[in-house]
Simulated assay, not measured.
Amino acid sequence: MAVEHAATEAAGHSATGDLLMSGLILLGAALAFVLIFRRLGLGAVLGYLIAGVAVGPHGLNLAGSAESMLGAAEIGIILLLFLVGLELAPARLWRLRKEIFGFGLLQVALCGIALTGLVLFFAGFTLAAAVAIGLPLALSSTAQVLPLLQSGGRLNTPTGERAFSVLLFQDLSIIPLLTIIAALSRAPADPGAPPGWLLAVYAVLAIVGLVVAGRFLLTPLFRVVGRFAERELFIVAGLFTVFGAAVLMDSLGLSMALGAFVAGVILADSPYRHELEADIDPFRSILLGLFFLAVGMMLDVDVVLSRPLFVIGMAAALVATKVAIIFGLARLSGMATRPALVIGLLLSQGGEFAFVLFTEAERAFLIAPEASSL
């Protein structure tokens, strides 16, 4: 017994040591590459992705499995959707309603259709695979555009407000895009899963339940927590709210991200909104960084290097297509030529949410890992 106990303890110490070593390597790589890319004026997302490629199985193979890290890192996506919901205060939505639900909707729809056609024609994928790639690429990078507007003092200009409105609609569109990918899924159906119409009923009942809970439970809870002026307690209450809403949706067979998003919308008008945002954002940043590290680790560099001209050509086509469509929409809405071109260039890149949607598309058997890497 004593020998078995000692062997178990040694194995536990070894596993912990391996985990710490992998964590140290990943954090060191992330720190180095994010600093380099920030220094070059590029985004942190690209730094995380390249760090993952460098230490992953297709690079130097210094860290552990990307799949095992991805599960924990996806909590960052849940927190991100919660923070998006917090931005949707009804007064702000009403003020920017035409820009968000007019210009934003047209941008996502037209760019998504055009890019789906582009992928279908040039890449030779099936229609379902082209949709799963084209629609996510219609979204732009909030993490790139907003800091750029803020640093230039242009966020509150007409161009800046329009760009922000489009980005806000893009963030909102994550939920319907996840739903589209789930509807196209080729993954084997769970025999115990309820039919689609029943899932829709569950979703409506869960959202109503969360709204009622927000009014009669969450608001009084945060009021009580606020009296103690303990920041740690506020963080615990915030994370409890996010995870509680996510677990509720997951137990009904629905998207955890949807639960977190609804929880954020419920608290968007709360007097504690800004404090919640400040407390949750560091967790979101760290876990989202881990998510992009895991995506980078799963990137098959050989697939990309085997077709470099295709990658460069499609990247150029992505930017050119989005610039042309967004510029045209801006001109039709009455913007002058120069601001219309500026907003087209600002929103021309692909966004970080595409990686989230590509991961879901892989799970749904719509695209192979090689196609995702490409």
Rank of each mutant, 00 (worst) to 15 (best):
V303W: 08
H58C: 03
L60T: 03
L252M: 10
A2N: 13
R92L: 06
D269Y: 03
F261T: 00
I367D: 00
A193M: 12
R223W: 06
T219S: 12
D300C: 12
I326F: 01
V301D: 02
V262A: 07
L127A: 15
A73R: 06
L276W: 04
G192A: 14
E87A: 05
L221Q: 04
I77N: 03
I174F: 09
V225F: 08
Q144A: 15
A114I: 04
L60N: 04
A51G: 01
G134S: 00
G226P: 07
R215I: 11
T359W: 01
I207Y: 06
M314W: 08
P220N: 09
E370Y: 13
G117T: 10
K322Y: 13
R38E: 15
F292N: 06
L198E: 15
I207V: 15
R92V: 01
E362Y: 01
A163C: 04
V356I: 12
I50V: 14
A143D: 11
V295K: 00
G264W: 00
A316F: 15
V262I: 14
L24T: 15
E370H: 15
L357F: 07
L24I: 09
L20A: 11
G350F: 11
A340C: 10
P90N: 12
S333A: 10
A237W: 04
P147S: 07
V295I: 15
V236C: 06
V304L: 12
G192L: 15
H274W: 09
P147D: 03
L276I: 15
T8D: 10
A6P: 02
E360T: 08
G253K: 04
L168A: 07
L168G: 05
L305V: 11
L290D: 04
M1W: 07
A138D: 11
E362D: 12
T219F: 09
N156H: 11
V34I: 14
L252P: 07
F355G: 02
P57T: 05
A7W: 06
F292M: 02
A206F: 11
A213W: 09
V3D: 12
T116R: 01
A278Y: 10
S348P: 10
A189C: 07
A371I: 13
A30N: 00
L27R: 01
R97W: 11
L93M: 15
